[in-house]
Structures are given as structure tokens and as C-alpha cells.
């Protein structure tokens, strides 16, 4: 190992411009989210399999909904994409960031805490945009015809935004209170349970008499909002209300119980 010329380490401290710091943080968070094979499985492979499998399976089994199968399932799978990234991926990543002291380390860097959060949020929306593109492309290939026009798209985007707030705050609450391994297990388990039985991919009406309860879960509410927008061009008011409720509840819980270390 070489020695260095004197003067190399002469102090010249200073923070980079905030925009540069946030950009660097968002780029790093996105890169690490996409590099993790397990996260990619949850973010893209499982939703695409659910969509293709659901459409093909419904045809084989002769299942019917009020609308064409692909038109019902694609909005639900888009909602599943939001759940996977803003809840499962975020919770797992944050759990291990706590474990490895990353959050503390960045806390001693020039990056302010809101810059860290902003970087995370940008990374989440970046990954979700990628998911939306892939899922929509697969949907179109299977014959998806979204209805509802511009209003439908606005409702879907607003729903995804509120859903992100609700799921992300609940995910942070979990990651900020449990051990990293427990978060890993619980986040994956909850994802699978909600995908199967949470009213997100399939409308709550497909679960029989008790299905109405699912409308009160953030997963069921987000699924309903997405379907109401992209099938009918309507806004599911109850779903929106439920998402706002969970976003507030999750933020209060995370704010109260999240431990940075």
C-alpha cells in the first residue's frame, strides 16, 4: 500500500447540494432494490405469474366475473405491485438497514433525514412505475382493455399514492419494531396471505358472504379503488376513505414506535 503526498487530506469539508444528495440516495436505493433477487421475485415475477395464471386458469376452469377476466385481474395485479414494493420490499430493506447501522451512518453524513426519506420515496415510485409498465404490458398482451378513460387513470394513480402511504407506513412500523429476520418472514407471509385472501387481486365479491370485511383492509380497499377506476371510471369512495384511515393509523404507529437503531 502506497503512501500519499502530504496535503492530500487537508480539510475541505462541505455538503453536496441537497438535490445531488437526494439524487444519489434515490439512485442507490433503486439499484439495491432491483439488485436483490428476492425483491425482484416479489415485485415482478409473482405479479406477472398471478396475472397470466389467473387469466389462463379462469378460462380453463370457466370462472366468470362481472366483466372480462383480464379487465378485472389487471387492476388487481397493479394493486398487488403497490403492496409488494411499498410494504414488503420497503419493510425488508429497512429492517436490514437498521440491523447493519446504515441509517445511523447516514445520520452522521451531510444527508438530512428528510433527504433520506425523499430518496426512499423516489426509489419506491421508480420501482412501482417499472412494475406498472411491465404489468400493463402483460395485461395488454392478454387483451386488457381499460375503461374509465382519463378519470380512471387519475383514480388509479391517486389510489396507488394513498396505498403507498398506507402500506409504507405500516411496513416501516413493522421494520422499525421487529428484528430484521422477523420482518423478513412476516413481510413475505403477509404479502402471500393478502395476495390470496386480501381482496387485492380478486374482488371481495369472489370471497362469498364474508368478503365485505375485506373492503376494510388496505389491500382490499386498494384493489377496489383500482378496479373502480380502471373498469368503470368511478371512484370507490369507501376504498379511498379506508386507505386514508390506514395511512394515518400507520403513520401514527410508525412515528410512535419506529426505532432508528
Amino acid at each position: 500500500m502506497s503512501t500519499v503526498t502530504p496535503g492530500t487530506f487537508t480539510p475541505a469539508p462541505g455538503a453536496a447540494p441537497l438535490a445531488q444528495q437526494v439524487r444519489a440516495q434515490a439512485a442507490m436505493e433503486t439499484k439495491l432494490l432491483l439488485r436483490n433477487g428476492e425483491q425482484l421475485l416479489i415485485a415482478l415475477v409473482i405479479p406477472v405469474l398471478a396475472l397470466v395464471g389467473g387469466v389462463v386458469g379462469a378460462e380453463r376452469l370457466g370462472l366468470t366475473f362481472d366483466h372480462r377476466v383480464v379487465d378485472v385481474l389487471t387492476p388487481g395485479v397493479l394493486a398487488l405491485g403497490v403492496l409488494s414494493t411499498s410494504f414488503t420490499s420497503l419493510a425488508i430493506a429497512t429492517g436490514f438497514e437498521r440491523r447493519y447501522g446504515l441509517i445511523k451512518r447516514l445520520g452522521a453524513s451531510p444527508l438530512p433525514r428528510f433527504g433520506l426519506l425523499l430518496g426512499k420515496v423516489i426509489a419506491l415510485f421508480g420501482v412501482m412505475a417499472l412494475q406498472a409498465i411491465v404489468i400493463s404490458a402483460v395485461g395488454f398482451a392478454l387483451g386488457w382493455r381499460p375503461h374509465g378513460g382519463l378519470v380512471g387513470v387519475v383514480v388509479a394513480v391517486a389510489g396507488a399514492f394513498l396505498g403507498t402511504l398506507a402500506f409504507a407506513s405500516l411496513g416501516l412500523f413493522m421494520a422499525g419494531t421487529l428484528r430484521a429476520e422477523a420482518t423478513l418472514a412476516a413481510a413475505n407471509l403477509i404479502y402471500l396471505l393478502l395476495m390470496m385472501g386480501g381482496g387485492v387481486v380478486l374482488p371481495h365479491s369472489s370471497y362469498g358472504g364474508g368478503g365485505g370485511v375485506l373492503r376494510l383492509l388496505p389491500s382490499g380497499a386498494l384493489g377496489d379503488v383500482m378496479r373502480s377506476g380502471l373498469i368503470d371510471g368511478q371512484c370507490d369512495a369507501l376504498g379511498m376513505f379506508v386507505l386514508v384511515f390506514w395511512a394515518i393509523a400507520g403513520s401514527l404507529l410508525a412515528g410512535r414506535f419506529f426505532k432508528w437503531e
Binding site: M28, L32, R99, G101, L102, R105, A108
Partner: peptide
Amino acid sequence: VMLQSGGAWSGV
């Protein structure tokens, strides 16, 4: 600041 341990993403 050099922490006593840790301080990075696990996969970085």
C-alpha cells in the same frame, strides 16, 4: 464519523 461497527447496506 467512524462507527464502532456497521454502517452500510447489507448488499452493497
